[in-house]
């Protein structure tokens, strides 16, 4: 019905007096790669938790692929709460890759990928397994299918977490700081992987500190502070032309200390 994979209207989340999310409006069309940055405590993680309904918003609406998540607004304006069962149904359309990965330690990699396919999507065992194996192939980790999460490296765990979310064929993939738990030498590898997904037309919302990713891969950059989206647009434009002082300060600070970005910025200047 809408052309949007994800749409939020007036999303509010309060913790006591604090407005962790202060009327967030966000539309993400299919195929777009959105990068979300902002100082710590700005509400990025809260936004992701609200989008998955792990932390239900106090106000506002979420639509995933044209389906209301949690609460719906009927055409006559009345608001209706959806059942827990319905929330779980719509959740399946969102793939979430947690910062802490949260793989299940008691299941093999293959089972981590196929359990939810079977019990939540009702896929047959063979179907779930072949989907899982195809993803492991695509992420170039097919050799660890039968290993347990505790037996594989951090980089491999990261890929398994991504594969687990993708196995559900979500409308959109959410990433919470996908590189923050990784050793520096693995960061580039994961960023390349995300770039691959982006090129294959995956819709993604990535919370990240990696401005290189924001600049090179994302179609769109959001800047958040104090629960509000303060800047929204093509990455270069947001980084270089924004007029909001808070946004300026943030990028000034980050770019000043981020050699990779400085290099990238220098290259851009050369081109223009």
């Amino acid at each position: 019905m809408t052309g949007f994979a994800l749409r939020t209207t007036g999303l509010v989340r309060r913790f006591g007096d604090l407005r962790a999310l202060d009327e967030v409006y966000l539309d993400i069309p299919y195929g777009q790669v959105v990068s979300l940055v902002g100082p710590s405590g700005c509400g990025k993680s809260t936004l992701l938790r609200c989008l998955t309904y792990l932390d239900p918003p106090d106000d506002g609406f979420i639509e995933v692929g044209g389906d209301w998540l949690g609460r719906e607004r009927l055409s006559n304006g009345t608001i209706r709460r959806r059942s827990r069962r319905d929330i779980d149904r719509v959740r399946r359309k969102i793939g979430m890759v947690f910062q802490a990965l949260n793989l299940w330690p008691h299941m093999s990699v293959l089972d981590n990928l196929s359990v939810a396919q079977r019990v939540a999507l009702g896929r047959s065992e063979a179907e779930a397994e072949s989907r899982a194996r195809a993803l492991l192939d695509r992420l170039r980790i097919s050799e660890i299918a039968d290993a347990f999460p505790g037996q594989i490296s951090g980089g491999q765990q990261q890929r398994v977490a991504i594969a687990r979310a993708m196995a559900m064929d979500p409308e959109i993939l959410l990433f919470d700081e996908p590189t923050s738990a990784l050793d520096p030498e693995l960061v580039g590898e994961v960023l390349r992987l995300l770039k691959e997904f982006a090129q294959s037309g995956m819709t993604m919302l990535v919370v990240t500190h990696e401005l290189a990713f924001a600049r090179d891969v994302a179609d769109r950059l959001l800047f958040m502070d104090r629960g509000r989206i303060l800047a929204d647009g093509p990455p270069q434009q947001v980084i270089t032309q924004t007029r909001d002082r808070r946004v300026r300060d943030f990028f000034d600070k980050v770019t000043a200390f981020h050699p990779k970005f400085m290099q990238a910025a220098a290259e851009t200047e050369d081109e223009s």
Partner: peptide, 27 residues
């Protein structure tokens, strides 16, 4: 059991029954 185990299962759309039987109880 880590909170994240449950959150990951919930985010994948698992219902309470499989969360108990596949994630919580085996661990």
């Amino acid at each position: 059991i880590e909170d994240g185990q449950i959150e990951a299962a919930t985010a994948l759309g698992l219902r309470p029954r499989p969360i108990w039987s596949k994630v919580v109880l085996p661990q």
